[in-house]
């Protein structure tokens, strides 16, 4: 399920175009993003879909480092995205600072909280870690409802100020464009990170923690860094979503989103961060933009995940990669090595 399938793809593309690892994924991702943005045009509803997809993608990308690279399933990401969202709400409602500050403060606070939670749960893994982090997500929602003075209670925070970047206020469409760019950039950087020496250590840690520890790497520290990085990315997504929606309540980021975010890399393909992005797009398409069987889109997604897990454990990207290899092999009239 977690084998690297697209590494040959990235390497092959790099040899053909330029020797930059991960450039192939970036090119494909950008092409897909342009196509989606062209499809969206000025349709307000479709723009909302893209923002949702970008948010889902960022939460899934945030989970990518700890969950698929380091192999520990932390499920507190509703809280991290919520922190990013509430940072936007609070900076807008309680301070006179420029709104852009929220995207600095939110990720930092989320990362600090992730480190704290990571320290408390550093000896846990598997089912125990999942249970504690789920409870943490629930407790965070309860806290948001209780702390009315800070978070506005169950009504949440609304009436956000418009974003102002050095006198320039981006329009709604420009925000949609911006979130697509942020997703592409972060996915590309994570792909590079996965292929970097640091990424290789983290991935080895998943499979053989004792060997990594014996080699002189501090596994707990590495785990904390992975968690903090993931939390910060998820907080960026939460902030983007809150800004586009114009308000945030304790129910904005539910545990449902965390479950969806676990499944997105499985749908898309766990081999590369772009798989998480592809999974996010498919998830949004199924859950939000499926008029024929509106109520059962999520059910379809859940069943689809089970089927994918059993039949095509490498996900959509892995499957496409296999097809591509087969196609090339046919074209070159070489024996199929895929």
């Amino acid at each position: 399920m977690t084998t690297q399938t697209s590494q040959p793809a990235a390497v092959a593309a790099g040899r053909d175009i330029r020797r930059v690892p991960g450039i192939g994924g970036l090119a494909l991702g950008c092409a897909a993003a342009v196509l989606i943005l062209l499809w969206v045009g000025s349709d307000g509803y479709k723009q909302t879909l893209v923002t949702s997809a970008a948010t889902y993608a960022l939460i899934a990308l945030g989970m990518y480092v700890p969950y698929l690279m380091a192999g520990s399933l932390s499920m507190a990401y509703s809280a991290y995205a919520g922190i990013g969202g509430y940072a936007v709400g609070l900076v807008s409602a309680k301070t006179g600072l420029p709104l852009a500050v929220a995207w600095l403060v939110g990720p930092i606070v989320a990362a600090l909280l992730a480190v704290l939670l990571g320290l408390v749960t550093r000896r846990l893994s598997g089912f125990f870690l999942a249970a504690v982090t789920l409870l943490f997500g629930m407790a965070f929602t309860a806290f948001l409802i209780d702390a009315e003075a800070l978070s506005g209670g169950s009504g949440g925070l609304g009436n956000l100020r418009p974003l102002n970047l050095f006198g320039w206020t981006p329009s709604h469409y420009q925000m949609v464009l911006g979130s697509a760019v942020v997703v592409c950039v972060i996915a590309f950087l994570l792909d590079r990170l996965r292929l970097s020496p640091w990424g290789v250590i983290v991935r080895t840690m998943r499979d053989a923690p004792r060997a990594v520890e014996a080699a002189g790497v501090r596994v707990p520290v590495l785990n904390l860094v992975a968690l903090a990085l993931g939390a910060a990315i998820a907080a960026v997504g939460g902030g983007l979503f809150t800004y586009s929606a114009g308000s945030i309540t304790p129910d904005t980021f539910t545990l449902n989103i965390v479950f969806l975010a676990i499944f997105m890399p499985l749908i898309g393909g766990a081999g590369t961060p772009w798989g998480a992005v592809a999974g996010a797009v498919i998830a949004v398409e199924l859950t939000l933009n499926f008029p024929a069987i509106e109520t059962s889109g999520t059910l379809l997604l859940a069943l689809g995940v089970l089927v994918i897990m059993l039949v095509a454990p490498r996900g959509v990207v892995g499957y496409a990669d296999k097809l591509r290899t087969r196609g090339w092999a046919l074209l070159r009239k070489e024996p199929d090595r895929g």
Binding site: L299, A302, V305
Partner: peptide, 13 residues
């Protein structure tokens, strides 16, 4: 764990 999470989610839906 992931498989069980998927089952949990699927039964809910």
């Amino acid at each position: 764990l992931v498989a069980v999470a998927a089952v949990l989610f699927a039964i809910q839906q």
